[in-house]
Simulated assay, not measured.
Amino acid sequence: MIRTVRRTLAGAALAALAVGMVAAANPASAQTPTTGLRAACSVAGPGEARCLAEYRSTGRMQRNAVHADATPDGFGAKDLRAAYGLPAKGGTGTVAIVDAYGYPTAEKDLAIYRKQYGLPACTVKSGCLRIVNQRGKTSPLPEPDSGWGVESALDLQMASAACPSCKLLLVQGDDASLDALGTSVDTAVKLGASVVSNSYGTDEFNGMADYAHYYTHKGVPITVSSGDDGFVAAAFPAVLPATIAVGGTSLKKAKNARGWKESAWSGAGSGCSAYLDKPSWQKDRNCSMRTVADVSAVADPDTGVAVYDTYELGEDAGWLVVGGTSAASPFVAGVIALAGHPSTVTPKRLYGEPKAFHDAVGGSNGYCGGDYLCTGVKGYDGPTGLGTPKGITPFQ
């Protein structure tokens, strides 16, 4: 239930505590950016959302490298599939990506990425890739925007990495308004999306009830990035109980049985809602309201993912290293589609299978006295939720 007037004392107090304690602890020091790191999108205005991708260029020598011995910086598709134990085959559904504005080089850039990592071609002509406006039409597409172009490139390529055989549907909102983005989600579902990824957000607000219907579609999982500002106010639309809120980790190679290790990324969004009642399936003890996040995946831009984007980035055009929970949401959406049973995947079901995830332990996204709401602890925690995909097991 969305409470637009009265908040429970505990939930409101914890939400206020999250903002106040993080500010007092100087969150910027906990989220020191990599040199040259840029936010793809500027701060959102009232009634708008901001895309959450953060990127840096990788140098002129790599920008046009597309051959067998080229090694772009950042984790590639093969790295990610190895890190999360994903099977080589599977997934026949459609992963929908919802973003704002146009991205004219989407098909060309996607082709470069997929060729680089040995993924099958996915083109408009073959029907594998569809690009439409928020009304579901292929023309006219919205006015282009280079910042949201980075976001769209990241989203398409992370979904490709997780599920190479899935079809892709890019729905472009007319702008970054909550109405345009929400309408785009509805359009994605109407066009047959198996799962819909949303890598944008804004702070939760009084009046979310007016937009919640866009993100409630029975039988179609909706993944949403949890945010990149650490332990602060919960982010909308990730905070909605109908969505799967995807937090972020720092992923690194390791000399262990898995070959990889993960901890909470310092920028991963987490928080205790000030407006939304706690869902019956969420049992964490120190937040009486809805807690973000639910699950997580790679997000740290310090060790980010490789993305190819050439749309109006000037000297930065080509191979980028990109991070943010914007990487995690489309990747998890792709894994859900890869598992082959998206219509059965709900937040409630995921909480019934906590041992099916890699537990990300260590790291923090702010100050909360070491509490799980901002610290990567054993079991559930705010920054990483239940954990990261352990193969397709959590979503079968």
Score class of each variant (00 low, 15 high):
residue 8 T to F: 07
residue 15 A to G: 13
residue 18 A to H: 09
residue 21 M to E: 12
residue 23 A to N: 14
residue 25 A to K: 04
residue 28 A to I: 12
residue 43 V to S: 12
residue 47 G to P: 10
residue 68 A to T: 09
residue 70 A to P: 08
residue 72 P to K: 02
residue 77 A to G: 02
residue 78 K to E: 13
residue 79 D to K: 00
residue 83 A to D: 04
residue 83 A to L: 07
residue 93 G to W: 06
residue 94 T to H: 06
residue 94 T to L: 04
residue 100 A to R: 02
residue 103 Y to M: 10
residue 112 I to M: 11
residue 113 Y to P: 06
residue 116 Q to F: 00
residue 120 P to T: 04
residue 122 C to E: 05
residue 124 V to D: 07
residue 128 C to K: 14
residue 134 Q to E: 12
residue 135 R to M: 09
residue 135 R to W: 11
residue 137 K to G: 12
residue 163 C to F: 09
residue 164 P to Y: 02
residue 178 L to T: 09
residue 178 L to Y: 01
residue 182 G to N: 00
residue 188 A to Q: 03
residue 191 L to F: 05
residue 197 S to R: 01
residue 204 E to G: 07
residue 204 E to V: 11
residue 210 D to N: 13
residue 210 D to Q: 14
residue 211 Y to G: 01
residue 227 G to M: 03
residue 228 D to G: 08
residue 235 A to D: 12
residue 236 F to C: 05
residue 238 A to I: 06
residue 241 P to L: 11
residue 243 T to M: 04
residue 245 A to P: 05
residue 251 L to Y: 06
residue 261 K to P: 03
residue 261 K to E: 14
residue 262 E to C: 09
residue 277 D to F: 04
residue 285 R to K: 15
residue 285 R to Q: 14
residue 287 C to N: 00
residue 289 M to T: 15
residue 294 D to N: 14
residue 296 S to H: 03
residue 297 A to P: 10
residue 320 L to H: 01
residue 323 G to P: 07
residue 326 S to W: 00
residue 327 A to F: 01
residue 334 G to S: 15
residue 338 L to A: 07
residue 342 P to E: 11
residue 347 P to N: 12
residue 349 R to V: 08
residue 352 G to N: 10
residue 355 K to S: 15
residue 356 A to M: 02
residue 361 V to S: 03
residue 365 N to G: 06
residue 371 D to Q: 13
residue 374 C to Q: 09
residue 376 G to E: 04
residue 377 V to H: 05
residue 378 K to W: 00
residue 382 G to K: 01
residue 388 T to Q: 14
residue 388 T to S: 13
residue 389 P to Q: 06
residue 395 F to T: 01
